[in-house]
């Protein structure tokens, strides 16, 4: 079952549009019927609320979710947390084309794949930080802004250029002769 989910039938690529604002691209096998009607109805209701409007396509995703639940040995009346996680896993299975995403398709923690396909080229395998590329920390070192203080070396090493000396001398003459 898991193999089928992670290696979807290539003949039937299915895309369901979840309304104008919610597009979810899904690929699923279509050969099986949903096993239990009550469970199916609950999953169907959830998917409808998630924006899966196309009945045929929704029913395929419902079937995949139900199968996923049964494969994990979940009871016939699973809790909503399990259903949500199963929908998530079903979508992960649909997203994964290489079958290498076993951890995601068996995870009991929902990763929010109902919205995942909105992110182009998202790194599904990373499992986290889908909104952004992977982080690689390189700290920005705080720069030194300590205050400059005059030192004795500065005074000793002071060199005044010839033109500056000339200008200073002129100003002194002006101060002595003209200003008074």
């Amino acid at each position: 079952m898991e193999a089928r989910l992670t290696q979807p039938s290539s003949e039937v690529p299915i895309l369901f549009e979840a309304g104008a604002d919610k597009a979810i691209a899904i690929q699923l096998p279509v050969e099986e019927q949903p096993p239990q009607s009550a469970l199916v109805a609950r999953i169907d209701r959830y998917l409808r609320a998630a924006g899966a409007l196309d009945t045929a396509r929704r029913s395929r995703l419902t079937a995949a979710t139900a199968r996923n639940l049964l494969a994990l040995g979940v009871s016939a009346e699973p809790a909503w947390a399990e259903i949500v996680a199963a929908v998530d896993r079903a979508l992960a299975g649909a997203d994964s084309t290489e079958g290498s995403d076993k951890a995601l398709t068996t995870s009991t923690t929902p990763h929010g794949r109902v919205a995942l396909r909105l992110v182009p080229d998202a790194d599904v395998g990373a499992g986290a930080g889908w909104g952004t590329p992977p982080r690689r920390r390189s700290a920005m070192r705080p720069q030194d802004l300590s205050l400059w203080r005059p030192t004795a070396e500065l005074l000793l090493g002071l060199r005044v250029s010839r033109p500056a000396q000339g200008l200073a001398a002129c100003l002194c003459w002006v101060a002595i002769l003209i200003v008074p």
Binding site: A18, K22, Y46, L47, A49, A50, G51, V84, V87, D88, P110, H111, G112, R113, V114, A115, L116, L118, V119, A128, G129, W130, G131
Partner: peptide, 15 residues
């Protein structure tokens, strides 16, 4: 409550 919004929000959170 909304599956889409809830999922969208959680995909953007960092654990």
């Amino acid at each position: 409550a909304d599956p889409f919004m809830n999922a969208l929000h959680r995909t953007l959170l960092e654990r």
